[in-house]
Amino acid sequence: MIEDEKIKKKYYDALVNKDANYDGIFFAAIKTTGVFCHATCPAKKPKYENCLFFQDAQSALLAGFRPCKRCNPLSYPHELSPLVKEIVSMVEQNPEKRWKDEDFKVLGAHPATARRQFKQAYGMTFVQYARARRMGLALQSIRLGEKVIDAQLNAGYDSASGFNDAFSKIMGNPPIKKGEINVLYAKWINTKLGPMLSISDEEFLYLLEFVDRRGLEREIERLRNRRKATILPGETKISRQIEEELNLYFENKLIHFQTPVFFLGSDFQKKVWNALLKIPAGEVSTYKKIASEIGTPDGVRAVGNANGANQLAIIIPCHRVIQTSGEIGGYGGGRERKQWLLDHEQNFHKEDL
């Protein structure tokens, strides 16, 4: 989500004036209707304070907004095929559904054909779209701080049951009686690098990730199953603490996090994560060096996998690990974020000397 006020006002002017030069440059999400549009949408223009702006459609979906039916923002500048239109319509009718090859065949289409047409039209795979839609429904209630899952949002969702089902399939059903099951709380945290999601109880932080991270839905489900927990929107003293520390971190006022965390992984993964914590801010290490330090010099690939399995972004600094060649390497939150974090910590380190 775009936070810069100057850019937001520029994009709002483009939206009001239906400036075609900005089509595909940003997507405008309307809080009062729950939809997102491209710059030349013919619909009545909303007030500035009711608009959010995103650089890509997937981020808008993850924030819980659905494509506007008037301007079809995901199809711009392409024309949607009848097959893709039908698939999108079915996703909106049943957003919690997990599609299989048989579902495409029911539509009279080969799965590969349907997926190819979808990718050509939307610039993202069908799996990415469907997952982002499900996650968006769940994350929307978290972003708005909803306490009760079945409180229907005013954003105009087509199906209240779809909202509830999508939330509960990812986060787990709410406990019938207090103490019947573990309860963890999810909180939306806005940062300079985009929104993050924290999941905690009153003792530990279990997950901290950027909401657009690839595979976040699977991470949440894995956490829920391992802790035998349901996850509800809300905050704890731990979520408040990590939000405060993140704000200080991004303001160059904190580099060592004190929030209590819980490592949910294998013994090998924990060994790798503890090694990552020893990398000083402003410095980097390599997968090969980490493997050697933990006594498995031939386990470079395993170290890379453990690095990618980290569920506590920034706190466990997997972004400080690069390739032996000096290349920056991958990062679950995106290579651009990784480079930003490294630059940020390098600058902070210099100021701290």
Rank of each mutant, 00 (worst) to 15 (best):
E293Y: 12
K289C: 00
L277W: 06
V272T: 11
A281Q: 07
K278Y: 05
K289Q: 06
I294R: 04
N305V: 11
E293R: 09
T286D: 07
K278C: 11
S285T: 11
K288F: 02
Q258L: 04
V284I: 07
I279G: 01
K288N: 05
F268A: 01
W273T: 06
S292Y: 05
Y249C: 00
Y287C: 07
D298H: 13
W273V: 04
F250D: 00
F262H: 12
G308Y: 09
F250M: 03
F250I: 01
Y249R: 00
S292T: 14
Y287E: 12
A291G: 08
H256G: 06
E244A: 09
E251L: 07
V303A: 13
G295T: 13
E243S: 14
R240A: 06
N274Q: 15
A291D: 05
Y287I: 12
L277M: 15
A302S: 12
L248G: 04
F263R: 00
N252L: 15
G265K: 13
N252W: 09
H256W: 07
Q258H: 06
F263A: 01
G295H: 10
H256P: 04
K270W: 02
G282K: 04
S285Y: 03
V284T: 11
G304N: 08
R301P: 00
S239T: 15
T286N: 05
Y287K: 08
A306K: 13
P280R: 07
I279M: 02
P280H: 05
V284H: 01
S239F: 12
E283K: 15
T259N: 03
V284L: 02
T296H: 14
V284R: 01
F268T: 02
F257S: 05
W273A: 09
F263H: 03
G265D: 14
Q269V: 00
A302K: 08
P260K: 00
D298Y: 08
L264C: 13
S292V: 15
S285F: 04
K289H: 01
L248F: 02
E244H: 06
E251H: 08
K271P: 00
V261Y: 05
L276S: 11
V261N: 08
N274A: 10
S292R: 13
L248E: 06
K278H: 08
L264Q: 14
V300C: 03
V303D: 09
K270A: 03
Q241H: 12
L276T: 09
E244Y: 03
E283N: 08
A306V: 07
K289P: 01
E244I: 06
V303H: 12
E293I: 09
L276R: 10
A275W: 03
F263W: 03
S239D: 13
G308E: 09
V272L: 02
E251N: 14
R301T: 09
L277H: 11
E283S: 10
E243R: 11
S239C: 10
P260F: 00
Q269A: 12
F257P: 01
K278I: 07
P297V: 14
S239E: 10
